[in-house]
Design a protein around this nucleic acid. Structure first.
Length: 596
RNA sequence: GGCCUUGUAGUUCAACGGAUAGAACAAGCGUUUCCUAAACGCUAGAUCUAGGUUCGAUUCCUAGCUAGGCUACCA
C-alpha cells in the first residue's frame, strides 16, 4: 500500500469511527499541499459535511486527531478553513524513497493481457511530410509507447494513402514535364520530387482554367473541363483497370516516395510494426455493406445507394455505398477496421488523425458498434488540433507549409549553434558532437509538440517557438546530463549507493521531500497519460521533476556534504531522478545525454 | 442555417468543482573562489461577456461574442 493509499484508508476509518458512516474511497481527494501552507498532503472536507453534521473546521479537526492517533505515517496536522493539511513523518519519506529506489522495474506496469493497435502517420504519397505530420507522428509514437508501458501489447500501424486522384495529379505532371528526372539525377528526395510535380500540376491546372475562362467558359465549367484534370481522372480510371503503363509509372514514383519517407521516419525516430496500403484496402468493405443490410443496420434507397441512419444517435444519415455500387471513403474504412481485427485480434484500436475528421470517425465507430463488433467499444479517435503558423493555417498549395525535413535540420543546426556557443563540447569527437546536436534538436521539437494537450490547436512560430531554455526538451535533457556528471564523480569517489549507505539519514530538507513526492507519482502519471491518451500529461510531469531537481541541485551541496550518509542519500536521490527522467523521456520518444 | 471544438499574464502553455488561478518566454533586479549558469532566486503581470447551479466555478448549465473545424454519391 502506498503512502497516499494508507492515508486515504485512514480517512475512511476516521469517518467510520467518528461518524459511523462509510465513505466512498473514490470521493476522497488527497492532493499535495500547496507550497504556501505547511504540510505534505491536503484533504478537503467540504464534500463530507453532510455526514459529519458539523462545521468544516470541526470536521477537519476531528479527522486530523484520528489520523494523528491511528495512522503511523501522519505526524501532525493543521486546519485552514475546510482544508486538513497533514504532515508526514520524515522517516516515512526515507522509507518511501528506499522502496522506489530499490524497485526492480520502473515505468512498466504489469501486462493487462489486452492488445491495442495505434494507427498513425498515414501519409499521402503525393507530397512530403510537413509540420502537421510531425505532431501526428510524435503523438502516435509516444502514445504507443505509453500504452505499452502501461501494460498493453501494442501494434503500431501505418496506413499509406497511395492511390487516388491526388496521386494521379503528380503522375500526370511528371509524365509531361518530368523529362525522366529521378531522385538520383536531381538530388531531390523522392517524396520532395513527387511533391514538386504535385505543385506543378496545380499551377498548370490553374493556368488552363484561366485560359478557358478567357474563352468565355464559366468558372465551374473551366474547373471541370481543364484538359489536365480530365487527364488525371482518365489516369485514375486506367489505374483501376490495371493499365500496365500507368501502374508502372505509379510504382516507380511510389518507390521514390517510400525511400524518402523512410529517411524522414528514421530522422524522426518513429517506426511501425505493420504498414497497410490503400491500394490494397480500397475495395474492402462491400461485404460489410451486405452484412449491414441483412442486419437491418443499413437501408437501400430507390437508386440503389446504401445509407445508415444515425439520427437517433444525434448524427445524420450517411451514405455508405454509392448508387453505382462503388465505394466511398467510409466503405473502405469499415473494411480496414475489420482487416486490422482479422490480422491481430485487437481489443482496442486507436486512430491518430486530425480533428477535422471528428465527424467521420464518430460515424465510423457508431456503425461498427451497431454491427456488433467485439472491438467496437475499444475504438478511439485520438483527435488532435491543427498546428497553425503566425500567418494562419498551413496550405500546401500556397507554399505556406513548414517542411518536416527542413524543420528537423534547422532544429539540429540551431542545437549545434547553441552548444558551440556555450562551449559544451570539449572532449567530444566529431561524431559524438553530431549525435548530441541531433538529440537536442529533435528533443526540443518533440517536446514542443507533445507538451500541449493533443486536443488543442496550437501555434508554431518558426522564429520564436523553439527555445532551449525553460519549459523545453533540452532543459530536461540538461538536468539529466547534470546528474550523469554527479554519478560519474560518485563512482570515482566510491560512494556507497546501496540503501544501507543512507539508512541512517534522519533529517530531510523540504526540497528533498518535494522531490521524493514527485518521483513517487511517476507511475500514476503514466497511467493517467495512457487513460487519457495524452503525452502532454507526462511532458508536464517530467518538466516538474527536472525543475524540482534543479532547485535541489542549487540549494544543497552533495560532495561538500560532510555527513556521508546524507551525501549518499543525495546521490541516490539524484540517480533515481535521472532514471525517472530517462524512462519518461523515452516514452515521449526523446533521448537524454550523459553530457551536454 | 445546423452540429462540434476553442477563448486564461505582452506571448506560448497549465490548473480530478477547492485555499491567494500555476509555469515558461519576454521585462526588471540579483546569484558563479562551491557537483555543468541550457541553471537558481526575487519583482511585476491574466480567467471573452451576461445570467444560472453550488458552501465554493477557469472548470458544470443557458445565451451571446471570438477563432477554427465539420456539414459532398471528396479523401
Amino acid at each position: 500500500m502506498s503512502l497516499q493509499e494508507s492515508i486515504i484508508q485512514g480517512i475512511q476509518d476516521a469517518f467510520m469511527a467518528c461518524y459511523q458512516h462509510a465513505i466512498d474511497l473514490e470521493q476522497v481527494s488527497l492532493s499535495p499541499t500547496k507550497k504556501e501552507f505547511s504540510g505534505d498532503y491536503t484533504f478537503v472536507v467540504f464534500p463530507f459535511l453532510k455526514i459529519s453534521q458539523s462545521s468544516p473546521e470541526a470536521t477537519a479537526q476531528q479527522i486530523g486527531q484520528y489520523l494523528k492517533a491511528h495512522v503511523s505515517s501522519v505526524r501532525d496536522f493543521n486546519v485552514v478553513k475546510g482544508f486538513l493539511n497533514l504532515e508526514v513523518a520524515q522517516q516515512q519519506w526515507l522509507e518511501l524513497f528506499t522502496s522506489l529506489y530499490t524497485a526492480p522495474s520502473l515505468g512498466q506496469l504489469p501486462a493487462n493481457g489486452k492488445k491495442v493497435m495505434v494507427e498513425y502517420s498515414s501519409p499521402n504519397t503525393n507530397k512530403p511530410l510537413h509540420l502537421g505530420h510531425l505532431r501526428n507522428n510524435f503523438l502516435g509514437f509516444s502514445i504507443a509507447e505509453i500504452l505499452k508501458a502501461s501494460g498493453y501489447e501494442v501494434i503500431k500501424a501505418n496506413l499509406v494513402n497511395d492511390r487516388g486522384i491526388h496521386i494521379c495529379k503528380s503522375m500526370v505532371a511528371y509524365l509531361h514535364h518530368g523529362n525522366g528526372e529521378t531522385p538520383a539525377s536531381s538530388g531531390l528526395k523522392g517524396d520532395h520530387l513527387a511533391g514538386k510535380y504535385y505543385v506543378l500540376f496545380d499551377s498548370l491546372y490553374k493556368k488552363q482554367q484561366k485560359e478557358l475562362m478567357e474563352q468565355g467558359k464559366s468558372e465551374e465549367e473551366a474547373k471541370k473541363t481543364a484538359p489536365i484534370l480530365v487527364e488525371a481522372q482518365e489516369m485514375l480510371r486506367k489505374w483501376e483497370d490495371h493499365d500496365q503503363e500507368v501502374i508502372s509509372l505509379w510504382k516507380t514514383m511510389n518507390t521514390w516516395v517510400y525511400a524518402g519517407f523512410e529517411e524522414t521516419y528514421r530522422n524522426m525516430g518513429v517506426d511501425f510494426d505493420i504498414t497497410y496500403y490503400e491500394s490494397n484496402t480500397y475495395l474492402l468493405g462491400k461485404d460489410i455493406v451486405e452484412e449491414g443490410l441483412s442486419k437491418g443496420v443499413f437501408y437501400k434507397k430507390q437508386d440503389g445507394s446504401v445509407w445508415v441512419d444515425l439520427s437517433a444517435e444525434g448524427l445524420d444519415e450517411k451514405l455508405v455505398l454509392r448508387g453505382d455500387g462503388t465505394s466511398v471513403y467510409i466503405t473502405q474504412d469499415m473494411g480496414t477496421a475489420d482487416l486490422k481485427y482479422k490480422d491481430f485480434h485487437i481489443d482496442k484500436s486507436v486512430y491518430v488523425v486530425g480533428n477535422e475528421q471528428d465527424y467521420h470517425f464518430d460515424v465510423l465507430f457508431k456503425i461498427m458498434r451497431k454491427l456488433g463488433r467485439s472491438y467496437g467499444p475499444g475504438l478511439y479517435h485520438l483527435s488532435y488540433g491543427m498546428v497553425d503558423l503566425p500567418s494562419g493555417k498551413m496550405k500546401s498549395r500556397e507554399g505556406t507549409v513548414v517542411d518536416a525535413d527542413e524543420l528537423i535540420q534547422e532544429m539540429i543546426d540551431t542545437a549545434a549553434h547553441h552548444t558551440k556557443a556555450l562551449g559544451k563540447i570539449e572532449g567530444f569527437t566529431e561524431e559524438q558532437a553530431q549525435g548530441l546536436y541531433e538529440m537536442l534538436g529533435l528533443g526540443a521539437l518533440k517536446y514542443f509538440l507533445l507538451k500541449v494537450d493533443p486536443k488543442k490547436r496550437m501555434l508554431f512560430n518558426p522564429q520564436e517557438s523553439i527555445e532551449f531554455q525553460g519549459n523545453t526538451g533540452p532543459f530536461i535533457q540538461y538536468s539529466h546530463a547534470r546528474i550523469a556528471a554527479i554519478l560519474r564523480k560518485a563512482a570515482q569517489l566510491g560512494v556507497d549507493l546501496s540503501p544501507t549507505g543512507f539508512s541512517q539519514v534522519r533529517e530531510l530538507s523540504e526540497t528533498e521531500v518535494s522531490l521524493i513526492q514527485l518521483l513517487q507519482d511517476f507511475e500514476r502519471k503514466l497511467k493517467m497519460a495512457a487513460d487519457e491518451y495524452s503525452p502532454a500529461i507526462l511532458s508536464q510531469y517530467l518538466f516538474e521533476v527536472a525543475k524540482e531537481y534543479n532547485r535541489f541541485y542549487a540549494e544543497l551541496p552533495i560532495f561538500h556534504e560532510k555527513d556521508l550518509q546524507v551525501q549518499a542519500f543525495r546521490v541516490a536521490l539524484s540517480a533515481h531522478t535521472a532514471k525517472t527522467i530517462h524512462c519518461g523521456m523515452r516514452l515521449l520518444g526523446i533521448e537524454v545525454p550523459q553530457r551536454m
